[in-house]
Design a protein around this nucleic acid. Structure first.
Lengths: 190, 190
DNA sequence: GTCTATAATTCGATAGAC
DNA sequence: GTCTATCGAATTATAGAC
């Protein structure tokens, strides 16, 4: 299969779509605006991706690219993961698009669950022999990672925005480390 | 000023609006749907609240009702705060409405910043004499609290949804405790 | 492959009768 | 105070010319 000329158009559409979905969310990111950004006609978007849902599905396809946690010294798991996520988030607006859109679009929320329960859950599952406990640890890690992403890139809470990546890693890594390798805490019966 | 009959209508509108905004977000929650839920005519919403923005502003008005942190033993700050937020979140869908809407509506994001930088920031400011450090601590606390809320009530990540409130407090309280009272970590220069 | 024209909805907001 | 009727704008999506 040779490279068709339309591939450039498809790529331009996807790039514009990612930016618009990341900046405006699903409802406010219109096909017209995306087409204008990509300098093409709105009908081309429909031709190539069928519908707005189809365009979003193509634009939000991505991989967390998690490192193999077995090659990481156990006491550096938290730092490694937090650094990885911060880097990943700063360099790929697909994650921001998915995050912003997951609040109102059921399909995006489902994708978000699949990514974090799937990719992160699988990586963590190899650290804890008990599947339920491993899933719980992965969920707690996701809560802190997504909380940072939400406050920093979506809401824009000033103190969180102003943290440097190094400060972010230094503060948050111990949290993730404890969620991954710390003992299950006692729960007080009320 | 005596109670007017229209007060019941206004209250019904606000209740329906909170539910719709919490469930659907700002764009998908239509005035027509809210009016139908409240069993009144859509034009009444406009008459009472002027615009959709005005309705949202009225529906999302709320207070975190933070306890006075000075009356809490220092080593129980994390537990107290996490328990408070979990209770608050489960019993008031205004917070869910604001959270879901903050992703796409700039006004809601601004409100969210005001609430967490203001109310939470003020409560934490009295624990740390350095204003910048206190703001940073409050921001980190917000990141974990909002991360739990986002994964549990918005995205619905299964392992986080399945945690009982007691488990949630037991796991997350140490994180918040460290953000509030722990030492500032060293940052490695890259 | 690309674009024009338009269909078919849906929404927020307004005017005015009762 | 409440409701009917409707405007004007914006959207996704389709049909078809070139």
């Amino acid at each position: 299969m040779t490279a068709r000329r339309s591939d450039a158009t498809r790529a331009a559409i996807l790039r514009a779509a990612r930016e618009r979905f990341a900046a405006d969310g699903y409802e406010r990111a219109t096909i017209r605006a995306i087409a204008a950004d990509a300098r093409i006609d709105p009908s081309m978007v429909m031709r190539y991706y069928g519908s707005k849902e189809g365009l979003f599905a193509a634009a939000a396809e991505f991989d967390l690219r998690l490192p193999d946690l077995h090659e990481v010294p156990e006491d550096q798991l938290g730092e490694t993961l937090v650094r990885h996520f911060v880097d990943r988030w700063e360099s790929d607006d697909r994650l921001v698009a998915l995050l912003r859109t997951a609040s109102t679009n059921p399909g995006a929320a489902e994708r978000m669950r699949a990514v974090f329960a799937g990719q992160l859950g699988a990586a963590v599952a190899r650290l804890d022999p008990d599947p339920a406990a491993a899933a719980r640890r992965a969920g707690l890690v996701a809560s802190q990672i997504l909380g940072i992403a939400f406050t920093r890139w979506i809401v824009g809470l000033p103190p969180v925005v102003e943290l440097t990546p190094a400060q972010l890693v230094a503060w948050v890594a111990p949290t993730v480390q404890r969620y991954l390798t710390g003992p299950t805490p006692d729960t007080i019966t009320p």
